[in-house]
Design a protein around this nucleic acid. Sequence first.
DNA 1: TTGTACGCGTTATCAC
DNA 2: GTGATAACGCGTACAA
Lengths: 349, 349
Amino acid sequence: MKKNYTIKDIARIVGVSKGTVDRVIHQRGRVSQETAEKVKAVMAQFEYRPNPIAKRLKKNTIYNISILLPQKNSDPYWLPCFAAIEQVEREYGHFGIKLNRYYFDPEVTASFLSVGLEAIASKPVAFLMVPLFFREAEIIAEKCKETNIKVATFNNYVNQSKVDFFIGQDLYQSGRVAASLFYILIKEKANLAILHIDESFQNASHMQEKERGFIDYFEINKSKEVKIHIHHLKKEDGFSIEETITNFKRKNAYLDGIFVTTSKAYLLANGGRVSSTKPILVGYDLVEKNIAHLKEGNISFLIHQDPKKQVYLSLTSLVEYFLFDNPFRKQLLLPIDIINAENYSYYLA
Amino acid sequence: MKKNYTIKDIARIVGVSKGTVDRVIHQRGRVSQETAEKVKAVMAQFEYRPNPIAKRLKKNTIYNISILLPQKNSDPYWLPCFAAIEQVEREYGHFGIKLNRYYFDPEVTASFLSVGLEAIASKPVAFLMVPLFFREAEIIAEKCKETNIKVATFNNYVNQSKVDFFIGQDLYQSGRVAASLFYILIKEKANLAILHIDESFQNASHMQEKERGFIDYFEINKSKEVKIHIHHLKKEDGFSIEETITNFKRKNAYLDGIFVTTSKAYLLANGGRVSSTKPILVGYDLVEKNIAHLKEGNISFLIHQDPKKQVYLSLTSLVEYFLFDNPFRKQLLLPIDIINAENYSYYLA
DNA sequence: TTGTACGCGTTATCAC
DNA sequence: GTGATAACGCGTACAA
């Protein structure tokens, strides 16, 4: 049953005033050698820890954090992020944490850069972004470093030396997880495809890592005979993305399984079947359309990247650092959640 | 850019003193009708929320919470719980939260009851337990209700009307998840066993729920021909548990897969193979021995019940209730995490 | 019915 | 070098 010793307790025990103890704690000098020693000894003895509550009350400063996100009407993958931001606002608003949202158009590279620069123009203490465009992200990160703004990133890799914090998944390993699922889903022989569907922007390294992990897994586990085909799919001129997909399926009807490395697995699950046996589908992300097909049995597994948790943890890491001096890890890798029709509901919202 | 309005701001705007505003907030009366109205209006307009920091500093009370857990040298499943307790202590210690640990011997029913009663004798504001013995747990819960102690439970069900809070998994659904994994692991025809291994105490309903979910899944998904055998296994007199298991395997060598409903799947994975084809194993919990067999390929999947998260969330729910009046849900069901050799590492510690 | 003053623990300023 | 004191926002006892 330990009491929390206060600065007052320490002062009383040593026989000095609070002011003196405070000067020792904050090393402001103007304290004699011997009293300083005595104060330090007593603090150590009673395990004095400054009360962060009182500290906060006294300081009473506002910490502005800017957040750069894709605008709401873009990919629904980002939707849960907004809830995380609101949650942090609720939990830490009274600690002086203010979150300022900035939105860019994920179809337009220039928008990312300009809105990003706008976001840091107000000199927040920290800046959180999803670095969809790594070149531009680095430019912004460098600007932040110049002006002493902590830079946090989530979901997409960017050169680690440029940023203070990254949270996301190990993409190589998530490719392996996908492969391990296919491994039990397929028969002794199978034709599998890795399908990179990318409607708008480039995210090459992202996909490459998943591809590498997927291939590696089957290099190591050779007891089934697997042929892996790699495809990049973009919306073809004059065709809708759905038509492009249908075209792909027609041309590749021999495939037993398709690993979709983006959140677009539902596009493959959609529409009329071309071959009599549907290919096995494994994809990413619990967006509404994917969930629907998961329930129907058209998609076997989804890998959950938990964007909400990514945002929540990046923000709370920063917040606790500013409020309570809690150091944060430079990098956090979230679990690679395996989702099927029986357990998906617990991961929503 | 909203400011956090304080009681002083409100008082100044309305043109009264802080005291008056405070009386309105806490409905202590002794305020004229019209000033009360005016104050309420202004509070609503500026979205006044009392500052929980200042509140806490002023109140300066200590909240004792007692926790009843199995002693450390029992099932390693409980180990992560201790880390969760320490984390809550670190995060909330300065908010006046004190956690008091009490340990019972899970082999001895009477120990659960006596230590449990001891834990609540000191009149904590809340009591958290893992109700391994539901009869005794109810007795303790009733005692708590009499003395106005909030009762929280985790991991094991107990009559919900007796307790204020439960966190755990939907066991029926976890049985279904296990079944859905077997469904893709097996061939067109299979003999499966549900194996309840229970070395010491009874936990009948716990296992029954998992069993029900497992069977239901195959009732619904009939496209594979599955025969399900149900076995209860206890240490036989004169034999070690390992010998009992070996004996079981010999007698049931025809099984294609075994669903172990406790954390003891490693016992089945251990030892010499009896039949030439090993049965597929799916079990529960990331205890060290299970993980080892998961890596080796002897266990296909484990379902993670996240005891650490269970304890962390039960405690923070209680804590936030006492500190900040945050209401808590009576029941929280955690995700049913699907773990295999490729993703287990992210769920440890 | 209303206003004032004090204290919670910390920090910072000011006077000795 | 050191101690006394004000202030952060809130709750409350007490004075008016």
